[in-house]
Amino acid sequence: MSDNDIEVENLVRVYGRGAGARRAVDDISFEVRHGEFFGILGPNGAGKTTTIKVLLTTLLPTAGRVSILGHDVVRDVQRVRRRIGYVLGGDKGFYDRLTARQNMIYFCDLYEVPHRVQRTRIPQLLELTGLTARAGDKVETFSRGMKQRLHIARSLVHDPRVLILDEPTSGIDPIGAREVRDLAAGLIRLGKTVLLTTHYMQEADALCDRLVVLAKGRIVASGAPRDVKQLAGISRVTELELTGVEQRRLDALRDIEGVTSVHVDVSGIQQIVRVQSAADVDCTAAIVRALESEKVERIATREPTLEDAYVALISSQDGKA
């Protein structure tokens, strides 16, 4: 067997049929090595959850091959289910009128963990996730962050080697999110392989050994976080508000030295133009010169956000296509 714990080859997942069919995941391939912390980074609707559900066996792939620890997710469903743990974001997924400990028992029995093992494992996992003091409290009284840690605890009841986390910090306050991130980072030290999806660039940056950036169902960048940022190649964003400028003149902005991408949003007669450029060049003056005699209502330069990185990656992808 190879040392890849997860292998995804040319995965395609289509929702619906005929004219209404929609490719949520469009021919993606990646592999996750044993002991690696791997990320899938992407905006809303990119296809992250769809990919995850194929790995969890709750969705069948339309095409392609996916295996976990050498077991095919279509042919070896039961083996896959016994060997992976997963956390789907959100504050549901428990008997909320029951206590944290009771919910742990439920999931232990669901995964056929022997009682003898449960007696030591449940306290261990509650301790690991910092929930020992609240183990006897009803889950409905928990904060979102605590519920998320309980999700992680319950995902480990059968001691899986591979752990899959779908947006584990979304909707959680910054302190709670940091606790979840610390917990996720600690899983690697326990010898687990972790696959995480997120739409936070910093989160991927802090946690992942390697990652893929997914947009509209396709991988637009992959590698170590450092490589991906370099690939995005942006570090400065200039935003302009214009009215009635001809497309030809906007296109001309792309030719300015240092500019990596130009993105135009039109609302009514107003145009919002986002120009991304390399860190070491200040393009503001050149932009103003290029738009000479046009009506510039506002111009501002700021640090790039994650959204900017996507825009850069996606528009460069569109350029290639």
């Binding site: 969890l56 789907l88 428990f94 008997y95 669901l110």
Partner: peptide, 19 residues
């Protein structure tokens, strides 16, 4: 379903019918 337990039970090795 509304407790979000349906999917976890499907994704577990125990058959849904048992739950």
């Amino acid at each position: 379903r509304s407790m979000g337990l349906l999917e976890p039970v499907v994704a577990a090795p125990t058959p849904l019918a048992t739950a």
